[in-house]
Simulated scan of single mutants.
Amino acid sequence: MSAWKQIVLALVIVVTAAAAWARFYPGSNEMLSSPDKEGATASVGQPGRNRAGQAVTIVASPAGTATINDRLQAIGTGRANATVTVNPYSSGRLAELPVQSGAHVEKGDVIARLDSEMEVIARDRARVGLDDAQAKLDRVRSLRASNAATPVAVADAEVTLANAKLALRDAELALERRSIVAPIAGTVGILPISAGNYVTSQSAIATLDDRSSILVDFWVPERFAAAVKVGQQLSATPLANPNQVYTGTVSAIDNHIDENSRTLLVKATIANPADSLRAGMSFQIGMRFPGDTYPAVSPLAIQWGTDGAYIWAVESGKAKRVPVRIVQRNTETVLIEAPVESGDMVVTEGAQSVSEGGDVRIAGEEPRAARAEGS
């Protein structure tokens, strides 16, 4: 490239750089319009002032406060509030199944009956024995009234009557237990057996689920162990139906943390009045905890140096560098740990021209003050 082309290219670069400086450098207009000798001879070491001796113009916004977003999310498995597998007390032929799968039964309703002919005979025999014992006692007492029977005979007759009563109660209980009743109120599952089958005390007749509420077991990280309390509210979203959200409460907390997973077992109770939930469903559990309050600043205020993050605070028209520790980043604010109070002005634009202790002017404040004086 010839020398004159190089000179032209250098001039173009210089002009472009000057135009960019005049366009983007804060306070450049003031420096070009009202230069003074003091500004021209000012040393680079003068903090916070440009070459014209004017305070650096910056954009600042007040710091606020915000609460840290401490939220727990976990996956849990639901189960019925109570589940009972019904077995007969004794062996026998299944004579009748009055219920069907999916039916709702109340506590005490008969769900099956076994053959009971032998138990009926035993009950009737016990009644006959009771009547005979009562008649014998009456005769002995009448004889005793005429001194024809001894007191021992009366006592023996009374014992015989008591044994007859116990025998009748035993027979009636055996007959009663030939009818298999529901121990809880709930919904009958699929019946694994039908009438006519021979069953034993180990045979499952039916399974009942109390779905009036659903219990959800889930695991929480150990850092939430002290925050989770019995009775605390939570939200439960079925993974099969994400549009439906249920409200529940913590019903039980385990007494130790699992050493392998470093998690704590928690049980929640979800009301199920519409019977729309089933045992075995998976839920996404959400819990919110009241977090600590921290100063909140704009993300543009965060600067980085060799020693970490910091911000520029404005105090009495001067810039002050404040080291910070970032606690949490949100969409519109950054929560920090620093000696900053709510309402303190923090530099958000023009921080590249600010130095420690330098004079700064917040853009827009002087025009507002001038308008206030003019009014």
Rank of each mutant, 00 (worst) to 15 (best):
R113G: 01
E119W: 04
I111R: 04
V140W: 04
E106D: 12
E96H: 09
E117I: 09
L143F: 09
L97D: 06
L97H: 04
A145Y: 04
E117K: 08
P151S: 14
R127M: 10
I121N: 06
E119R: 04
L97E: 05
R113T: 10
D138N: 11
N147Y: 05
V152A: 15
I121G: 00
D115W: 03
A122S: 11
G102I: 08
R144W: 04
A148Y: 06
L130G: 02
A148W: 05
A135P: 02
A122W: 01
A103N: 09
R139Y: 12
G129Q: 15
Q134Y: 05
L137H: 11
G108Y: 02
R144C: 00
K136Y: 03
D124R: 13
D115V: 10
D109W: 00
E117M: 06
A95R: 14
L143N: 08
A103P: 01
V128D: 09
D124L: 12
A145F: 06
V99F: 04
V99D: 02
E106Q: 13
L137A: 14
A112L: 08
A133C: 01
D138S: 14
P98E: 02
R113I: 01
Q134N: 12
D109R: 05
A148H: 06
A122H: 02
R127L: 13
K136W: 01
L97F: 07
A126W: 07
L97S: 04
V152K: 14
A133M: 03
S116Q: 10
K136C: 00
I121F: 05
R141N: 14
M118L: 11
E119Q: 15
A126K: 07
R127K: 12
A145D: 15
V105K: 05
L137V: 08
D124P: 01
R144Q: 13
L137I: 01
E117P: 00
L130N: 05
A135N: 14
L114V: 08
D138H: 10
S116P: 01
A126M: 06
A112Y: 08
V99T: 05
A149R: 04
A133D: 03
S101R: 02
A126P: 07
I121Q: 09
A122T: 02
A112S: 07
Q100I: 02
V152D: 15
S116V: 02
L114A: 09
A112D: 08
L114Y: 09
